[in-house]
Amino acid sequence: SPTVSMAELDHLAHIISKSHLETCQHLREELQQMNWQNLLQDEVESYQSKPREVMWQLCAVKITEAIQYVVEFAKRIDGFMDLCQNDQIVLLKAGSLEVVFIRMCRVFDSQNNTVYFDGKFAGPDAFKALGCDDLITSVFDFAKSMCLLHLTEEELALFSAFVLFSADRSWLQEKLQVEKMQQRTHLALQHILQKNQREDGVLNKLRCKVSALRSLCNRHTEKLSAFRAIYPDVIRTHFPPLYKELFG
């Protein structure tokens, strides 16, 4: 765009990257020092033998914790706080879980197909008690495909912001303003990818990830509805209030 200079794109990339690094649940240094220890077989079995509702509650708590960091990420991006509060809420309701899924690749071990969960690295089998194997498999596949792109933290940050500023979410009041932020974020991402001498295909691959993320979130909503039909009281009394607010 002729209206955005390279310096502005660098500045935007810097702000978004800084926000991302400040609000990552696990710092990069922490990850490097972390002993990427897998769950032992009896620990896997212990998760598998939990009652369905207990495992759902545990995952809801973990998701909610991760989402709180995403809210903080959004708040530190100037353009986000300039939006009206309705739109801030709309974007977070629709996009915060998507950003959690993106961030998941930072704590994902591709070789073992395990993800950092509750202190150790867990494979899909540890989540059996949830009763949604297909969704879990898709989430792991998504994380694996994100890892294959080998994005830098800055690229990851910009892609997260791009997804957060989705201008096609329902109920936005100032759609144009969101669109403008999304375009700028897209340009910044493109600019940084070029600067990092990434091949052209990466941006296209990331665009494809947007629909994959939507599908994952829709399926999470479906699974939650099915769970709610059987355990309405568990959600009401034991699930984190923020989780209920976002997905209720």
């Binding site: 809210v71 903080e72 708040k75 809420i89 309701k93 607010e245 976002l246």
Partner: peptide, 16 residues
């Protein structure tokens, strides 16, 4: 606002 009380609060809180 009432429906999204917590989200509203999180957005209002100054960044920590």
């Amino acid at each position: 606002k009432e429906k999204h009380k917590i989200l509203h609060q999180l957005l209002q809180n100054s960044t920590s």
